[in-house]
């Protein structure tokens, strides 16, 4: 039986129309997330991950941002046709987001308790005392003593601020949580704590999760599925096992190859050659073609998403050829 769909996106296009030209941030993205599942959205800086997330909340700054989409549904409700007040209801309640930089994500002039309670008061018609009490509980939940609710963001360390941001995002038990590189600004020990916390909360509330990151380690830690993004498109999507053990796309291969090998520390790092294409001027066919060691004439044409298995899809036309495979060995 198919599980309840929390999010369904079809053909999402986001571009920024600036004075220096049109930046094509997201170019036809499809995504489905079931209840309780977590998906890792992986890709380099500038691949369009954050923009994708913001467009789910309809928070892409407009102007200059233009969002076009065939379908954007949040548990069956059409987000695109929502009025402003409906959107305000959905934000923070059905879908919430943890932002990348905890240093700037909190308002410096309000106490952390107020900032958590605000979310609760907007979405659940409770008294301010009740909201305050719930805010303290949320703080305890993320491992901060409730008495500290009356303190201001500058009185907290980076890791604690990020936990406050998480507490805000989880305050109303959203159905879908988007975490935008939640650990990038944190040091490694704190990273582990935050990930552990998110995993526990996800299980506790059966929240669906989109984990935006460029850290494959985090993906392996917390995600069920993985989508690899490149130049505003998903170029490979599958279960964690599909992607980690049977990666198909040359770009995914490149990502894995560029991870330093702990067993052979003298080995030279093998980065992906070249740079991301200029988003104001994307190539017509596969956007990875200029950097791809397997590129051929056929790659200069529009690429379709090919099905490899029930769960595994790749956007590379070379798999239409009999016997094509990338060099990375399949594990298992």
């Amino acid at each position: 039986m198919e599980k309840e769909l929390i999010l369904e996106i079809k053909d999402l296009v986001v571009r920024f129309e600036t004075a220096d030209g049109v930046v094509h941030a997201v170019n036809g993205l499809d995504l489905k997330i079931e209840k309780g599942r977590s998906i890792g959205l992986v890709g380099e800086t500038g691949a369009g991950k954050t923009t994708t997330a913001l467009s789910m909340l309809r928070l892409v700054p407009d102007p200059p941002g233009v969002v076009e989409c065939e379908k954007l549904e949040l548990s069956g409700r059409d987000v695109l046709s929502m009025s402003v007040s409906e959107l305000e209801e959905v934000r923070g309640k059905d879908i919430s987001m943890i932002f990348q930089d905890p240093m700037t994500a909190l308002n410096p002039v309000f106490t952390v308790g107020e900032q958590i309670a605000e979310s609760i008061q907007i979405h659940e018609k409770v008294s301010s005392q009740e909201a305050e009490k719930r805010a303290k509980e949320m703080l305890e939940l993320v491992g901060i003593p409730g008495e500290r609710a009356g303190e201001y963001p500058h009185q907290f360390s980076g890791g604690m601020k990020q936990r406050v941001v998480i507490a805000i995002a989880l305050a109303c038990h959203p159905k879908l949580l988007i975490a935008d590189e939640p650990t990038t600004a944190l040091d490694v020990t704190i990273q582990a704590q935050v990930l552990d916390l998110m995993r526990r909360l996800k299980e506790q509330y059966e929240t669906s999760l989109i984990m935006i990151t460029h850290d494959l380690g985090i993906v392996a830690e917390i995600c069920d599925d993985v989508a690899v993004m490149y130049a505003g498109k998903i170029i490979e999507i599958g279960t964690l096992r599909d992607i980690f053990n049977k990666a198909k796309h040359p770009y995914t291969e490149g990502l894995f190859n560029s991870i330093p090998n702990i067993h052979d520390r003298k080995a030279k790092l093998t980065p992906i050659q070249g740079l991301m294409p200029d988003p104001t001027n994307l190539p017509e066919g596969c956007a990875f073609e200029p950097r791809c060691p397997y590129a051929c004439e056929g790659c200069k044409k529009e690429q379709a998403l090919l099905q490899i298995s029930d769960t595994h899809f790749v956007r590379c036309s070379r798999y239409l050829e009999e016997g094509f495979h990338i060099e990375r060995k399949e594990k298992e």
């Binding site: 934000r91 919430s96 932002f99 002039v109 309000f110 979310s119 805000i168």
Partner: peptide
């Protein structure tokens, strides 16, 4: 353009309140 206004919006705070409460105070 501060990030914390985006956080406020993502919480579902209305635009009016984002400006008058969160932005103006800062």
């Amino acid at each position: 353009h501060q990030d914390y206004l985006r956080t406020a919006r993502a919480k579902g705070v209305s635009e009016k309140k984002v400006i008058r409460h969160h932005a103006l105070r800062n």
